[in-house]
Amino acid sequence: MNRKLLLVVVLLLLLPSLAEAQCAMCRAVVESEADGKTAQGINNGIVYLMALPYVLVAGLFYFIYRKMRG
């Protein structure tokens, strides 16, 4: 059990470095575009990825609320 927890902690500590590398790549692509359509697409993707967990959690709480009420 302790080894699994340690492995999870190590993996979580390593992931931010991978995420930063990806962000630098996205930034380079956006900066190289002249018309801005790529930047708009990336911004829309970020909003979509940000909003989806909130919608899922709200739906979960709604169904829990309905189950408890009735």
Rank of each mutant, 00 (worst) to 15 (best):
V10W: 02
M50R: 02
C23D: 15
V55G: 02
L5G: 06
N44D: 14
L7R: 07
E33V: 02
F61W: 09
L56G: 08
N44M: 12
M25E: 15
V57Y: 12
G59M: 13
A28C: 03
L15V: 07
M25K: 15
L5S: 10
L11M: 11
M1T: 04
P16A: 05
R27W: 11
L6K: 08
A39T: 05
P53F: 01
L60Q: 01
M1I: 07
K67Q: 11
A51C: 00
V10M: 09
I64W: 09
V9I: 14
V30L: 10
S32N: 12
G36R: 04
G36D: 02
R3G: 06
V30Y: 03
A58K: 03
R66N: 05
K67A: 13
S17I: 10
S32W: 04
G45C: 08
Q40T: 09
E20C: 10
I42L: 08
F61V: 04
A21G: 12
M50D: 05
E31W: 08
V57F: 09
Y48K: 01
V8S: 07
A21Q: 15
L15Q: 08
L12N: 13
R3M: 11
G70Y: 11
N43T: 04
I46M: 06
R27G: 00
Y65S: 07
I46N: 01
E33S: 13
V8D: 05
A51V: 09
I64K: 06
L15R: 02
A24S: 10
K37T: 12
G59T: 08
I46Q: 03
M50N: 06
L11F: 15
F63C: 03
A19R: 14
I64S: 06
A39W: 08
P53I: 01
G70C: 04
L52M: 09
A24N: 06
R66T: 02
M25Q: 15
C26P: 04
L49D: 01
L14C: 14
M68N: 11
I42Y: 10
F61R: 00
G45S: 10
G70T: 05
V8R: 06
C23E: 14
A58W: 08
T38F: 14
V10Q: 02
G45Y: 12
A24M: 12
P53L: 01
A58T: 10
M25N: 13
A28V: 00
G59Y: 12
I46C: 02
P53K: 00
Y54W: 10
L18H: 06
M50I: 05
V57K: 01
E31I: 01
K67E: 10
Y65L: 07
R69D: 10
G70P: 08
A34G: 05
C23S: 13
L56N: 06
F63M: 11
I46L: 10
V55I: 14
A34L: 06
V10N: 00
V10R: 04
Y48F: 12
L56V: 10
L18G: 08
G36W: 04
S17D: 05
Q40R: 08
D35S: 14
L49W: 03
E20N: 09
G45P: 01
N2A: 13
R69S: 11
L49E: 02
S32K: 11
Y65I: 00
F63K: 07
G36I: 00
G45L: 12
K67H: 11
R66Y: 05
E33T: 08
N2Y: 06
G45F: 10
V10C: 07
Q40Y: 05
V47W: 03
V29A: 15
K4N: 07
I64N: 04
S32E: 13
N44V: 09
I46G: 00
E20V: 14
V57D: 03
G36V: 01
